[in-house]
């Protein structure tokens, strides 16, 4: 490509310079973030260990029963017992902590941004191409700056996961807010609502099912990043799969992969939109 009539535009070089600049000037700042993420994940892992597998399994089965009923509860129970039986419990808990941290941060950052995008047209127009970029850029690429900024281990894994998994939450929150019927907005204005009252009493509650659909997608995307995150040293089931691939161990690959599938299906079903019991369907 060097003999073209046009000189190469040094996009790669610019990206390099940008990351270098950020690393040089904001290293301390990113260090704090990395430490924060690490301690959040660590406390989750500690909490799961403190709960013991029995309590953890029963708790999740109970949540599944409350959200979806007996079928999903049974699946959760059997699936988690199987993971325990196969000997992947500790790693599963690390993966669980990674996913949970990413999802919580995705919601904390993505939900307000989504609301802003739902209310403000200009902001919506600016964010849409950025979100497209975030979702379509191969997820491996995020690992490179993540290593520079956050070192290795859990924090860069979490950050790369957030970048990849957050867009659906932003998109669907914005969509949900925009889809609130205009006559309901008029009604809340006509009764003299402030912007905040309108947001919290009308727009967010009505957008809630759509927002939940976005959160569900974010959870699924987080799980899909588990193996990728292990490339930068994030521990858990992803690391097991990575190890299995590099050492051609079918047994470990299948078992760890199965554990990821179980966690994925479980989280998907629990977080999926249920029919709203209160409004009796429709």
């Amino acid at each position: 490509m060097s003999e073209t009539f046009m000189p190469k535009i040094p996009i790669g070089h610019w990206a390099d310079l940008l990351v270098q600049f950020i690393t040089n000037h904001f290293e301390g700042f990113f260090g704090y973030i990395a430490a924060g993420i690490q301690s959040f994940v660590d406390s989750l892992v500690w909490l799961f260990a403190f709960m013991t597998p029995v309590v953890f399994i029963l708790l999740l089965a109970a949540i599944a029963f409350w959200r979806r009923g007996i079928g999903v509860a049974l699946f959760t129970l059997i699936g988690l017992v199987l993971i325990y039986d196969l000997g992947y419990w500790a790693h599963a808990m690390q993966t669980f902590a990674l996913v949970l941290t990413s999802v919580v941060l995705s919601i904390v950052i993505g939900f307000p941004l989504g609301i802003l995008a739902g209310i403000n047209k200009t902001f919506h127009r600016i964010t849409t191409p950025i979100l497209d970029f975030m979702q379509t850029m191969p997820s491996f690429v995020y690992l490179i700056p993540a290593i520079f900024l956050f070192g290795t281990g859990m924090p860069p894994g979490v950050v790369a996961t957030i970048v990849f998994a957050m867009p659906p939450t932003i998109r669907m929150t914005g969509l949900g807010i925009r889809q609130v019927p205009s006559d309901l907005i008029e009604a809340s204005d006509a009764f003299g609502s402030t912007t905040w009252q309108k947001l919290f009493k009308v727009q967010i509650p009505i957008a809630a099912p759509t927002v939940m659909a976005g959160v569900n997608q974010s959870i699924m995307l987080s799980l899909s990043m588990v193996v990728v995150a292990s490339l930068v040293g994030a521990p858990g089931l992803g690391a097991d799969v990575y190890l299995a691939v590099t050492s051609l161990r079918t047994d470990i690959g299948v078992e760890a992969g199965l554990a990821i599938v179980i966690i994925a299906i479980m989280l998907d079903r629990i977080s999926q939109n249920t029919r709203n019991k209160k409004t009796g369907g429709s």
């Binding site: 019927p181 006559d183 309901l184 008029e186 009604a187 509650p205 009505i206 409004t279």
Partner: peptide, 9 residues
């Protein structure tokens, strides 16, 4: 309002 505009939630 014509379309009632009741809050479904």
């Amino acid at each position: 309002f014509q379309g009632f505009a009741l809050f479904p939630h």
